[in-house]
Design a protein around this nucleic acid. Structure first.
Lengths: 337, 337
DNA sequence: CGACGCTACCCAAACGTTTGGGGCAATCGT
DNA sequence: ACGATTGCCCCAAACGTTTGGGTAGCGTCG
């Protein structure tokens, strides 16, 4: 019982035989640049070849092509977790742009664990990707340095590390915007839920916030946490138990912010009234929460797209240029008195 | 200025020359089944070959392999949107299982739009995938039938259609569980936010709920909606404006449920007290909401995993067998008086 | 009228595997 | 002692492309 009853896909040779020319001619006509096609065959022959190719539904075999050209047109993408909507959205941007460049991508989760990161890059490399987009760089840049040492073209996205090419949001500025907003509202007791200590996103957002408050002569307590609701919840609990109870909290991630609101409520306080809460990324959910969340919008889709384009530039031999995209504060009820 | 300074990856031939044997021998030793390796070379030769392979860091070239064997070890995955956490989680399950089977996957978004679905499957096919996992089947089964007609091995996940092989949650049962819960709480005026009319998930969940209520002699109004917060919001507004205001609402999707709670609040009512709300899928966020959401837990990760495994079985020539996984009701504050 | 340059092709090698079919000792069965 | 078997290995073709290098025929030019 054979599976695959359909006829095998057409090859260059079949087209060549049908059209009565050599496969090399067909190859040049079908897949060559315009000037090559005109040099390879006469107008009529070109037409005939194209017609036969269409009739036979010819599609170039990517494996043969890759084998011959040593180029896979494949891009490996590494993210901490695809089920994190932030990363998923960035990936959508990458995928869109890749499709536009005739590239295919494949994603892998690293869960921010070094051994997984290493294993997954290895896997990508053994699949012979042309390049990598890394969304899970750690700020110590250790792994990234290793990869760079292997001479694999790559670009970082969302997080930066060392001075490797990256496309990120201006996280420092984002943190600063929140600080300014809080200061305008008159908050003097504030706290930061800073996320994982190895992610440049959390680090920069925190730094921007803290620096701005320091300018105002105020010291800010900082608590690290996981980038999810549970992490935010715990971190907020800690902040609330500290000496001077904060009247406003900045979580470097929307999920952490949601967890923080939960903690505030659990402490018998009203989020948004007793304690203002702001997040980061402005995921679609933020606006739809029972208490709509103030957040810093980061251009996630755009970031993915730009990252892929920077990678394409690198693959094209250009000098890598990092990019930092502008964030935008979106004020909602969670920080409105 | 050459990019790629690193040495080219080792080939079978290099290993063969180093070990002083023929490439065919190396091939059998390195990539053949155990009985073949023992027939191909002596203990010592095997050892020598393995050592050289390791020393040279040999990795088989997947393109050459695929070209020769006409098998790509690639699986294409189609989902409506990867930035939907439900699909992303299912995909994680697929990916995990695929990795365990030595397969690579690549995902694409179809946005539930037929022309995109067609384009994406075409793309996958021209990449010569061995099979497809479809997470975006429409209940009219039109596209799926087309794909089946092309004799491409595939499996549906999350949604079923026609009698094509699929791995789904027992959505009908899930809907029924919610209905029973609502009945126990004494709700007689209820409404369903049913999601998109083309998705078997929404259809079945709704049917299970409605049927159970009908058994109790109660007719239930049903409103369709998008599978997101905005859709849930609008649908809930409609339900609230109807003659007899419902005291409980069942949304076939957690995001829609969150939107519904928003609508309830906007109508000046208290979600969970004036109007109970239940969702479906039990995404991690559900438990962490300010008002924790009652939801039906569907085994998303497991579903992905099983789907991939069914596909592997099909590829292995076995008779396809659909699977329906059990849901579980998780009661939280949003439906507790 | 021979050299030259086009145009429109074809030839063949190469990319790195897998795999069916040998071959040639050494060993075994009788 | 002789043929058959086994253990260990090599040869070569094939998968579907791309690409550097022909070359046959024809028109042009000095």
């Amino acid at each position: 019982m054979k599976r695959q009853g359909g006829k095998k896909p057409a090859t260059l040779r079949m087209v060549a035989e049908s059209a009565g020319v050599d496969v090399s001619t067909v190859s040049r006509v079908l897949n060559g640049p315009p000037d090559e096609v005109s040099r390879a065959a006469s107008r009529e022959t070109v037409k005939a070849i194209r017609e036969w190719a269409a009739r036979l539904d010819y599609r170039p075999n990517p494996h043969a092509k890759s084998l011959r050209t040593a180029r896979s047109n494949l891009i490996g993408v590494l993210v901490p977790r695809l089920s994190d909507v932030v990363l998923a959205t960035i990936y959508e941007g990458i995928e869109d742009a890749a499709a536009r460049h005739g590239l295919a991508t494949f994603v892998m989760n690293s869960h921010d664990r070094p051994e997984k990161q290493r294993a997954r890059t290895d896997l990508a490399l053994s699949r012979r990707v042309d390049g990598l987009v890394l969304g899970d760089a750690h700020s110590d840049a250790q792994l990234v340095d290793e990869i760079a040492a292997r001479n694999v073209p790559f670009v970082l996205v969302s997080r930066h590390a060392g001075d490797h090419p990256s496309v990120t949001c201006d996280d420092y500025l984002g943190g600063k915007l929140v600080a300014e907003h809080f200061l305008e509202l008159g908050h003097e007791q504030v706290g930061v839920i800073a996320g994982e200590p190895f992610a440049s996103t959390g680090i920069d957002r925190t730094a921007g916030f803290v620096d701005r408050y320091r300018e105002a002569g105020i010291d800010v307590p900082v608590v690290h946490s996981a980038f999810d609701t549970a992490g935010g919840h715990r971190a907020a609990e800690k902040l609330l138990q500290q000496g001077a109870r904060p009247t406003a909290m900045f979580a470097v991630n929307d999920f952490a912010a949601i967890g923080a609101m939960g903690a505030v409520r659990d402490a018998g306080l009203r989020p948004g009234e007793d304690v203002a809460v702001a997040g980061f990324n402005d995921i679609p959910l933020a606006a739809e929460l029972p208490l709509p969340l103030t957040s810093v919008r980061s251009p996630m889709h755009e970031m993915g797209k730009r990252a892929l384009e920077v990678l394409v530039a690198i693959l094209g031999g250009q000098e890598p240029r990092s990019e930092r995209l502008a964030p935008k504060l979106v004020v909602r009820a969670s920080t409105r008195p």
